[in-house]
Amino acid sequence: MSEMSILFALVLWFAQRRQLRAAPIRERVIWYAMVGLAISFAFVISWHLAPNLQPLAWIDRLFDPLTHKLYQIL
């Protein structure tokens, strides 16, 4: 999957390079940040690191108790 994400990123860069060059610096930074994030996610998955990370743990901790309370009330 990581190879595929890099391939996609390259294709994307190639397809949009003219638009990118024309875009203001802010948009370019965001673009590169997004692509970088995507590739890092892909690497995390293909190195099997994802199961240990629990990226949604914070949101679980925030809202799970509330939802359970709601179910209990009902």
């Binding site: 595929m4 391939l7 996609f8 390259l10 294709v11 190639f14 397809a15």
Partner: peptide
């Protein structure tokens, strides 16, 4: 040309993994 190259790359990765 750009579209052709993108399409070619896309078809490549399509056929590799599918």
């Amino acid at each position: 040309k750009r579209i052709l190259i993108v399409a070619a790359l896309f078809v490549c990765c399509l056929s590799l993994t599918s």
